[in-house]
């Protein structure tokens, strides 16, 4: 596809963890130095492969959280699933200096290209914010003019990744709005009780379908199903609603 960062062939390579950073009590950003990274578009992911001493290995996909200014490290942000095989290793065991095998970038559809003039609606459930954060960061760096709205559903205020950075960007990046939905516990003084994302949320905090926004919905499968169904019911063109389902129920 024209304009994607897809190389002809995706080769496994060893990246080095250069830093780790807690985002929430259960999510962590891992900063990766990748010697031979061809660059990526916001929204793409990479595949990561862990190998045990006896050769047993496990692969998983992780979205790229960082933007790509043409050089520099690549960041992923991983949410711990308590009974998971790979995510607790990444959130609790990995340390700077460790080497991790990966390949990428992958995916030519769930990407935002800064040449697309339409306004953008981002809808995130939990760790689904990760690829959307890459889009927000890219927009900020390019000082792109397309207005962005992010609707970000989290259980509690403590579960919001990138909360500080989002606050700062809402102040400094003109045309960026962020609206939180809290499903279990709201911050003190929040005007509404906890609730799941619904028609009212997407109606009042998204763009009207008439604006023909590019919509990106990402998160656990059930969240994406719900949000995408509502968007279509509100009149958004299904072909403008791009989805990435992370799995789970």
């Amino acid at each position: 596809m024209a304009g994607t960062a897809l190389p002809g062939r995706l080769i496994w390579q060893a990246a080095t963890v250069s830093a780790v950073r807690a985002e929430t009590p259960s999510a962590r950003t891992i900063v990766l130095d990748i010697p031979d990274w061809p660059g990526h578009l916001p929204g793409q992911h990479l595949d990561l492969r862990l190998t045990a001493e006896d050769g047993y290995s496990a692969q998983r996909s992780y979205s790229i959280a960082s933007d790509w200014p043409g050089a520099g490290p690549v960041e992923i942000t991983v949410q711990r699933l308590e009974d998971g095989e790979v995510s607790p290793y990444l959130t609790d065991v990995v340390e700077p200096g460790d080497r991790i095998e990966l390949r990428g970038p992958i995916g030519g559809w769930f990407v935002w290209r800064s040449a697309q003039p339409a306004p953008v609606l981002l809808v995130a459930g939990g760790s689904g914010v990760v690829p959307l954060m890459s889009m927000i960061r890219e927009r900020g760096r390019l000082r792109a003019r397309q207005p962005f709205r992010l609707i970000y559903s989290v259980r509690t205020p403590e579960d919001a990744s990138f909360a500080g950075e989002l606050r700062r960007r809402v102040r400094d990046d003109p045309g960026l709005d962020v609206h939180f939905v809290y499903t279990r516990k709201t911050p003190d003084g929040w005007p509404a009780p906890p609730k799941r994302i619904d028609v009212a949320t997407l109606n009042s905090h998204g763009w009207p379908p008439d604006f023909a926004p590019d919509v990106f919905v990402c998160g656990p499968t059930s969240f994406v199903e719900t949000a995408a169904d509502i968007l279509v019911a509100l009149g958004h063109d299904p072909s403008k609603v791009r989805t990435e389902r992370f799995g789970g129920g």
């Binding site: 045990a52 001493e53 991790i100």
Partner: peptide, 8 residues
């Protein structure tokens, strides 16, 4: 490459 501390 072996992932230090990864059991699976």
């Amino acid at each position: 490459i072996i992932s230090r501390g990864f059991g699976g």
